[in-house]
């Protein structure tokens, strides 16, 4: 058996520090069983979901497209009804994708999401990805630093995005 990469996914995480600790523990177990070689890509991707009430899907999608695809020039590209933005911060790359999602898409793509507790039918989604392509030796400490640093960037980006959404919509 051979392998080139390793992905660990947590759905509905309640505590990001706990999720990072659990991810690192799983990687330690993998490293014990099959030593991890040099790494050419480290990546953290976080999906944010925000329920929107008192707004129908189509009008909100139209407004989002109008604001972020037709009027704003800060976004690099659009894919279907979502916008894409690429940025660099030091040796890290940030990829932003956001858009409007209805409940059926949400149920399909986020099966663990607690739907019973949510009454909204429309959601704003945001995916932020931080990646580094430096070739490095794997170590728990350095990957933990990467995850904590990347999470902070994702959180700051998410807060900024939330403010923009509140002003625009």
């Amino acid at each position: 058996m051979t392998y080139n990469d390793c992905s660990i996914m947590s759905e509905d995480p309640t505590d990001h520090r706990q999720t990072i600790t659990r991810t690192l523990s799983i990687l330690e177990n993998i490293n014990d069983a099959t030593p991890i070689s040099k790494i050419k890509l480290q990546r953290l991707r976080i999906f944010w979901i925000r329920p929107v009430r008192n707004y129908e899907f189509k009008p909100l999608k139209r407004k989002y497209r109008q604001c972020f695809i037709k009027e704003k020039e800060i976004f690099d590209n659009c894919f279907d009804s979502s916008v894409v933005l690429e940025m660099s911060r030091g040796r890290l790359n940030l990829h932003h994708q956001s858009g409007i999602m209805d409940i059926s898409q949400l149920q399909k793509d986020y099966r663990v999401f607690k739907m019973k507790a949510v009454t909204s039918k429309v959601f704003i989604f945001l995916s932020t990805t931080i990646s580094s392509t430096d070739v490095v030796e794997y170590s728990r400490k350095s990957f933990e630093e990467f995850l904590l640093n990347s999470f902070e960037i994702c959180q700051t980006h998410s807060d900024g995005f939330e403010k923009i959404m509140e002003e625009v919509i």
Binding site: T2, Y3, N4, S7, M9, E11, Q42, R43, W48
Partner: peptide, 19 residues
């Protein structure tokens, strides 16, 4: 608009050599 929640948390490592 309610609070923004993290719905999914993904990490990925790609290795420089096939292991």
């Amino acid at each position: 608009i309610a609070n923004m929640d993290i719905s999914r948390f993904e990490t990925k490592l790609e290795f420089s050599e096939e292991t």
